[in-house]
């Protein structure tokens, strides 16, 4: 198993009660592998309690990036959230903690 942090980088964004998370391998050759193993279902399970509902995954093949769109609870928006990180900006780091089946 390999932790995503070792092979990819990510940036989180927020729109209303949605978090967007990019996932970009350092080695473009790994992009097809990430497309295969980092499924939206796995990401939803990994991110846990703050993500409610279905995670949707988009491919940006031109730059070799995956994009995960993660719904949060209705009141969990940047102005209303009770969370310390109201934007959810640190969720990129949560994604990179995920482990994938890969030879290190």
């Amino acid at each position: 198993m390999v932790r995503l942090y070792e092979v990819a980088h990510s940036r989180a964004g927020d729109k209303g009660n949605v978090t967007t998370l990019s996932l970009i391998p350092y080695d473009p050759g790994l992009y097809p592998v990430l497309c295969e193993v980092v499924t939206p279902e796995e990401v939803g399970r990994h991110l846990g309690e703050r993500v409610v509902g279905e995670v949707v995954r988009h491919r940006m093949d031109g730059v070799g990036a995956l994009l995960f769109v993660c719904p949060r609870a209705p009141g969990d928006t940047v102005t209303e959230s009770l969370r310390l990180d109201a934007h959810g900006k640190s969720m990129s780091s949560a994604l990179l903690e995920m482990e994938i089946p890969l030879e290190p």
């Binding site: 980088h9 990510s10 940036r11 964004g13 927020d14 729109k15 949605v18 967007t20 990019s22 970009i24 350092y26 988009h58 940006m60 730059v63 070799g64 990036a65 994009l67 769109v69």
Partner: peptide
């Protein structure tokens, strides 16, 4: 570089198509 561009291209996008 291409990494900073990729991160920003995807930033806060909910449907890249």
């Amino acid at each position: 570089d291409t990494r900073t561009v990729a991160e920003q291209l995807a930033y806060e996008v909910t449907d890249p198509s």
